[in-house]
């Protein structure tokens, strides 16, 4: 709690200490952090390593852009429509991909992700093909606050990521969320206890897609542009790295992971053209050395110094 409040205060005062470059980087970090956080629902809480998470991010972004191109530029209409589209796609895709599990699930999600990627590429009348859809303006919230101001947009993103975090944290304290965690821990035991584990995984998949779609919405408003590249498997892979580096099953960790990767990417690309090589090596190092992620590491230190062990999210006695 104390840690969380400190972090929040730091995030609130941060824009005052940053230049415009730093601020725009931080906005990206938060948007991708939300994206990674939504993937953590699957990897860290449900035990599903999904490789098409970029699909839902991209669909959210595309829906906003397509609506704008057809004259619907109301933020309060586009946002729910985009999230709904991601959720809807997940309810359909989930029916097919969740018939399998483990590595098979991973490969099938990857293949389906590339299917949607190819579709975005080919369906020019809607998506603009490889040219993408440029020129998406910042949203008009209907308040007298301009979103063209980077600082204001930063706070908008911050509000969304905080709300998402609180919602998800609450979810995993409710019986439904506890049951989803149970599936990650032992699916066979959950079935033996009477849980429809397929349904739980399906719900998690759909919920995660919704939040990924939300991240996509913020992304397209911020970036002003969306292209098929944002649906590519490299995006999904990058999100997995963010989750693992930051710490699975922590919600906050993936945001840290997003920060580390994006900041590193920005620093490196300023110095060398070879930054994909370095990122690749980062993946390798991450696998060989990082066990619980940064958040896991910090939490362990914290618990060692502060209190005895308590399982993640343990409820207080009734």
């Amino acid at each position: 709690m104390f840690l969380g409040v400190t972090l929040l205060i730091a995030l609130i005062i941060l824009p005052f200490g940053l230049g415009s470059y730093g601020l725009s980087l931080m906005i990206s970090v938060l948007i991708f952090g939300l994206f990674a956080m939504s993937l953590d629902i699957l990897i860290g809480y449900t035990g599903l390593v999904s490789f098409n998470h970029a699909t839902f991010f991209g669909v959210g972004a595309y829906v906003v852009a397509i609506l704008f191109y057809r004259g619907w530029d109301n933020f309060w209409l586009a946002l729910p429509a985009a999230v709904a589209a991601s959720v809807l796609l997940a309810t359909v895709l989930g029916l097919v991909v969740l018939r399998s599990s483990g590595p098979y699930f991973l490969m099938i999600t990857l293949a389906f992700g590339q299917m949607i990627f190819a579709l975005a590429w080919k369906w020019r009348t809607f998506t603009g093909g490889d040219d993408g859809l440029p020129g998406i303006p910042r949203p008009d919230l209907g308040f007298p606050v301009s979103m063209w101001n980077e600082q204001n947009f930063y706070y908008l993103v911050l509000v969304f990521i905080c709300l998402s975090f609180l919602l998800l944290r609450q979810l995993f304290r409710l019986p439904l969320g506890r049951a989803i965690i149970g599936v990650k821990e032992s699916e066979s035991r959950m079935q033996a206890l009477g849980y429809n584990t397929w349904l739980l995984k399906y719900l998690a998949y759909v919920i995660a897609a919704g939040f990924a779609g939300l991240a996509g919405v913020l992304y397209v408003y911020y970036n002003g542009f969306i292209s098929p590249q944002e649906l590519n498997w490299t995006m999904s892979g990058m999100a997995i790295l963010m989750v693992v580096i930051g710490g699975t099953g922590t919600l906050v960790g993936p945001v840290l992971g997003a920060g580390i990767i994006l900041i590193l990417q920005n620093l490196l690309s300023a110095y060398t053209e070879r930054w994909p090589l370095v990122i690749g090596m980062l993946f390798v190092i991450c696998v060989i050395h990082v066990k619980d992620g940064i958040a896991g590491y910090v939490m362990k230190l914290w618990e060692k110094g502060w209190k005895g062990y308590e399982s993640p999210g343990s409820e207080k006695p009734n």
Binding site: S186, R189, M190, S314, E315
Partner: peptide
């Protein structure tokens, strides 16, 4: 189960609650 099959990363209370809540 023959091979112990519990929610190893959760507390005992959380384990039992998972059984009770359903």
């Amino acid at each position: 189960f023959q091979i112990t099959n519990l929610f190893f990363n959760l507390s005992l209370m959380d384990n039992i609650n998972l059984a009770l809540q359903i």
